[in-house]
Design a protein around this nucleic acid. Structure first.
Lengths: 252, 252
DNA sequence: CGGCCTATTGACGCTACTCAACATGAGTGG
DNA sequence: CCACTCATGTTGAGTAGCGTCAATAGGCCG
């Protein structure tokens, strides 16, 4: 939206990238920083729908989203799919593959996306020279585990509307951390993707979003989301400390 | 069941523990092995229902189950709980806390359990001396992430019966890896815990298990499970390669 | 033996899915 | 430029699966 990116700037090094505080450890000295930055590879950007890696491929690298967004998904032999994550700039992908030597999920671009590749064997070499590097990745993995516990809570206990509200809040927080508005943003994924991720039907997504519009909590026009009443959205998401009475306001 | 453990054997070192191949890296030389083993602490066994750690407590150690079993769970301010894992001997706990400096879930003993404590700051010191140690833990974390993706698939896409069948299969595989029968075992958790973990109601667990008994797939008597027809259990779990027709056998 | 907790079974209802029709926007070719 | 198609999203009607409520049975412990 606010930045024009030309082809050359894709070759941006980590030192010019505002997201390096998310991908790389804090507190590296310039020399260490440059060591890590030097192993990062960048290919041409992925187009919408293109595969970054596929389930079963040998694991060679971790990937960081520099711009755009990526979904990761499982596929079963029945042809079912389950989206297990949406990844936005500054976030790393591929941790699930590290223990298996091969990818356990596929990664697909949701829009045109620039990706940084971090070859794992080089990371391993650097780990001996740059103290705190393995720790940094262990922290990221730990956060991913904790986040997925949160998803299990969503899928196991929350209602459709709670899931959607929580999902929008999660996006809001993540956009906000990247310097974008927490209230207005464009979804990069389809309703189908959201439904799949949240364990719901597409129609349920539409209906709940319409309902929250009627309630004045948000305004939505296809991909565009405008959160009008953040506190109530938090209440619907089940994050309020007070007992959840708002949905019964009109009853009786 | 098959082993009598007296009080002194609780002081068992890693070198005598048959599970050390699960907790600790393979391929350590005896010297390295002893270094790692020397930092492992063991307290008195936990009794059923006792807390190993609680959500919000500062993170100091990883824990390994030596005997017994542990459940980990999230708690929300609404008083909801979501069990996020069951841990059996040889499995490690606490990876979710590593990135937060504090525990993001609570751990409770399902039965009398012996636990090994691995102080994190000592592990970190050893990481410099024992190559492959951080890698080992990253592998374990990676596996946990991949497993949780599988749980998201369960909770997002599978029916009640598929979830229960998958759950029993998962236990079967894990018991089997530990030298126990894959067909007969005792559940260490209650129906309530299973229901919570799988995002179902207790009654649904009972009904599905009864139904699978009627179908001759398994025999169950409270905690005791006897899997009579493993292939069909796999089919019900949705793991069969052939289209899933078995549930329609009797229809029309 | 009595009380309590866990598990099972049945009846009923609600949430969210399925099926279907329709609307809207994007992309394509004449 | 418009007409056409296709993909995506919205809305409605009917329904199935699973949750809730309730009653009962069985095991465990004092």
């Amino acid at each position: 939206m606010s930045k024009v990116i030309n082809i050359k700037s894709v070759k941006l090094s980590c030192s010019q990238c505002s997201l390096s505080t998310l991908c790389l450890p804090r507190g590296l000295n310039p020399e260490e920083f440059e060591k890590v930055a030097s192993i990062v590879q960048r290919e041409r950007p992925l187009q919408r729908g293109e595969l970054l890696f596929e389930i079963g491929q040998p694991f060679k690298s971790l990937f960081a989203v520099q711009s755009g967004s990526i979904k990761t998904l499982l596929q079963t032999r029945n042809g079912e799919e389950q989206i297990v994550g949406f990844h936005m700039p500054g976030e790393l992908l591929g941790f699930d593959a590290l223990g298996h030597e091969e990818h356990t999920c596929s990664a697909i671009a949701l829009e045109t996306s620039s990706i940084c590749e971090l070859p794992y064997h080089k990371l391993n070499e650097l780990a001996h020279q740059v103290p705190g590097l393995s720790n940094h990745f262990m922290h990221l993995m730990s956060n991913e585990i904790a986040d997925e516990h949160g998803m299990m809570l969503m899928l196991g206990k929350k209602s459709a509307e709670e899931r959607i509200a929580s999902f929008l809040l999660s996006l809001s927080v993540r956009y906000s951390k990247r310097g974008f508005s927490p209230n207005q943003f464009n979804l990069t994924m389809s309703r189908h993707d959201i439904a799949n991720y949240l364990g719901l039907a597409v129609e349920t997504i539409s209906r709940c979003i319409s309902h929250m519009q009627d309630e004045g909590i948000l305004a939505a026009d296809r991909k565009y989301i405008n959160i009008l009443d953040m506190p109530r959205l938090r209440t619907v998401a089940g994050l309020a400390e007070r007992p959840c009475t708002m949905l019964e306001e009109k009853v009786e």
